[in-house]
Design a protein around this nucleic acid. Structure first.
Length: 194
DNA sequence: CTTCAGATGCTCT
DNA sequence: GAGCATCTGAAGA
């Protein structure tokens, strides 16, 4: 299926967050495709969203990537030990992104299990299987994504999203997670899942 | 199933 | 120095 181009990301952030659901995220690692289907996303809109790192166009070392062209990977360290994967959206200069919060494994389970638990898929407990990729930090561990991949071009060959042919039959929306500090923005229904 | 504490280091004030 | 777009394991219900 077709790799999504820059025009996909160069749209309203909430629309991109919704339309990413069901798509396949591909991470090429040591020559192998690690593939998962996106099941949960969140939208962050810098110009008016207090939860966004680049709220009010705040430009610092960390937020610099959010000012890159749409279709750029924004990966940052959180809580000192985990990484979160985002896709930059909207026309260049609008510091907006979609956080990838959860996914389901499709291909490359051996290497994803190694990255996540340091074991093979067969050694995973039922509990570990159930909670395999259902969090932004977990996803990055499984896909071997760190800040070294911050700024990657999603129209390149190392990390990209492609159409999977399947359309979600139902999309849920609710408030975003872990942003209670963001006042009124904490209530925006900008988390989406299937 | 639930809550809770602790880990750990970067970023910005 | 404070706080953070999180996760894990332990303990209790």
């Amino acid at each position: 299926m077709a790799k999504l181009g820059q025009e996909f990301y160069n749209r309203d952030t909430v629309e991109v967050a919704r339309s990413l659901l069901g798509k396949e995220l591909v991470r090429v690692w040591h020559g192998e495709d690690l593939v998962c289907r996106i099941t949960e996303t969140e939208a962050y809109v810098g110009r008016m969203d207090k939860a966004c790192h680049a709220y009010g166009y705040r430009r610092t070392g960390r937020t610099e990537t959010l000012f890159a062209p749409p279709g750029t990977a924004y990966i940052y360290l959180i809580y000192g030990m985990y990484c979160c994967l985002n896709f930059v959206t909207e026309p260049e200069g609008e510091p907006c992104a979609v956080l990838i919060r959860g996914a389901a494994p499709v291909q490359g389970g051996e290497r994803m299990a190694r990255g996540r638990f340091g074991c093979s898929p067969g050694e995973m407990t039922a509990y570990q299987k159930k909670h395999f990729l259902n969090g932004p930090g977990k996803l990055c561990m499984a896909l071997h994504l760190t800040r070294e991949q911050n700024g990657l071009d999603l129209t390149g060959s190392e990390l990209y999203v492609r159409d999977s042919g399947c359309v979600p039959h139902q999309i849920y929306a609710g408030r975003r997670i872990g942003i209670d500090y963001a006042e009124e923005a904490a209530e925006f229904p900008w988390r989406f899942w299937i």
